[in-house]
Simulated assay, not measured.
Amino acid sequence: MKPCLLIVLSCLSVKLFSQTSSNANHQSVYTIENVQFKSMGVSLAGAIFMPKHPHAAVILVHGSGQERRMVNLASNLARNGIAVLTYDKRGVGESGGVYAGPEVGTNNVDSANLNLLALDASAAAQTLLLHLPGKKVLLGLVGFSQAGWVIPIAAEKNSEVRFMILFSGPVATTLEQLRFQFYTNGKTSFWETHSEADVREHIKNDPDRYQFTATDPLNSLIRLKIPGLWLYGGKDIQAPVGLSIERIDKLKAQGKPFEYHLFPMLGHNTAFSKSQEPYNAALQWIKDISHCSKKNGYKGKSK
C-alpha cells in the first residue's frame, strides 16, 4: 500500500473546475489561448485566460490526484481581472510525463515527485510571464492541499513569483500529514470526539507506517520574503490545521509577510465548499496586494 494523501480534495476539484466554461460571451471579458510548455524534458499542456487589463496573474497548482486544468476557476478569476495559466498535471490529460499517485501504485508525496511538480509550476510561471502585457503585473501561485508542499518549493526556485495562496495547504511535513490522516481515518465526526491536544500528541509520537524522506515546507518558507495567504477550515480532517497555524504564527513573528484565515465551520475543501468566503477572501487579498504594489512602485524580484 502506498501513501494516499488528500485524494478527496483532488477528485472534488476535478469535478468542479475541469469543465468547459459555460460563459459563451467570455471573449468580451477575456481570451483563452491553449499553450504547451516544457518542463524537465516533457511537454505540459494548458490554457491561458487573459483579461483585457490584468492587475495580477496566477498559476493554478494542483492538489493530489489525476487533475486536469481548472477551467471554471480560471474563468472566474479572469472575470475579476486576473490572468491565469491552468494546465493538465504531469502525466494527465494532454500533458506528457509520468503521473505519480496511489491510483497507479506510486508515492505522490515522495520528495522527488514534489520537487518535480514544483519545477512544473515554475515552468508554467515563466510561460505566463511571456504572455503578460508588460512587466508590472504581479505573478503568484495559487494551489490546493498538496500544493502546500509544492508551492513553497516552486516560489523559492523562481524569483519572479511575487505571492502565494494556499487553500488547506499543510505547514507540516509529509510524514506528519500522514500520521494525522491515519488518525482521523476520514471520519467526519472526528473533531466531536478528539481535541487539538490529542492530535498534537499523536502527530508527535505515532510511528510512521512508511519510510521515505519527508518534505518540510518550512525549509522553503523560512527563506521566502513574498506575501503568503493560507485559508483553512476548522473541521479539516486531512491537514493538521492547528499545527499549521501555530507555525505560520511563528513565521509571522519572525517578520514574514504571511497571513491566514480560519473558517471554523468548513472542512478541507475550503476552495470548493458551498461557502464563497474563502474564495472571496483570496480574491480580495490579491486585489489588495496588487494595489499596494502599484502604490509603492513595482520592485521586480523579491528574493
Rank of each mutant, 00 (worst) to 15 (best):
P264I: 12
G91I: 04
S220K: 06
A125I: 02
T20A: 12
F163K: 09
S273D: 14
K303R: 05
A154V: 09
S159D: 14
A214P: 08
G267H: 13
D249R: 14
L12G: 00
V137A: 01
V109W: 04
S75P: 08
T188M: 10
P170F: 08
K157V: 13
T173S: 15
G186D: 10
L77W: 11
T270V: 12
H55A: 01
A57R: 00
R223A: 11
I153N: 09
T270D: 06
L5N: 03
M70S: 10
D236A: 13
E176G: 10
K135R: 07
E277H: 13
T174W: 14
V199S: 12
A281W: 00
G93S: 11
G300A: 04
N76C: 12
F37K: 07
S64C: 02
I203N: 01
S290I: 01
H62T: 09
G143P: 04
L141M: 15
F272G: 03
H202P: 03
M70A: 14
D208V: 05
Q276N: 13
M40V: 14
H131P: 04
L166C: 15
T184C: 15
N205Y: 12
M40F: 06
E160G: 00
V71G: 05
P51R: 02
S64D: 10
W285V: 02
S111R: 11
H26N: 03
V35P: 07
V137H: 07
V104P: 09
N205A: 11
Y232G: 11
E192I: 01
E192D: 15
H268W: 00
L141E: 07
F163G: 03
G93P: 06
H53D: 14
W285M: 01
